[in-house]
């Protein structure tokens, strides 16, 4: 059985690996988790994205959560920032669209244009 100190050391190591991954990640994905987003289904969207990233063994992306983006009627919202720092904001994302964002945008470099709410 590992002690808390062991786990803390492992966490620091994992954090360093994640920081290295963040530097090399081609895409950074943020799921908006304000009250409005959560009520509209953001947790399901986050779960679907994490599941797809895990299943497809995606190595070039980081996923995190963020607060309300100020467009509550468009929730759930997902932002994908690419290597050029250009951010695509998707609106009214479902679990199915979330999986498409991973497979088409993150892995295929093709924006899922029908669900884009905002660019730049």
């Amino acid at each position: 059985m590992k002690t808390l100190e062991d786990l803390r050391a492992i966490k620091e190591k994992a954090k360093k690996e994640m920081a290295a991954r963040e530097k090399t990640a081609k895409y950074r994905i943020s799921v908006a988790m304000g009250t409005c987003g959560i009520a509209a289904g953001a947790r399901t969207v986050m779960s679907a994205m994490l599941d797809e990233i895990s299943k497809r063994n995606v190595e070039n992306a980081m996923i995190s959560q963020t607060g309300c983006l100020g467009y509550c009627d468009q929730e759930p919202m997902v932002q994908v920032t690419g290597p050029d720092n250009n951010t695509i904001t998707y609106g009214k994302v479902t679990a199915e669209i979330a999986r498409r964002i991973v497979s088409e945008h993150v892995l295929g470099d093709a924006v899922v244009s029908s669900y884009v709410f905002k660019q730049g």
Partner: peptide, 11 residues
């Protein structure tokens, strides 16, 4: 549940 367990599992 302790979130550090995620890191233990990774290890």
């Amino acid at each position: 549940f302790d979130s550090f367990r995620l890191f233990g599992y990774m290890e």
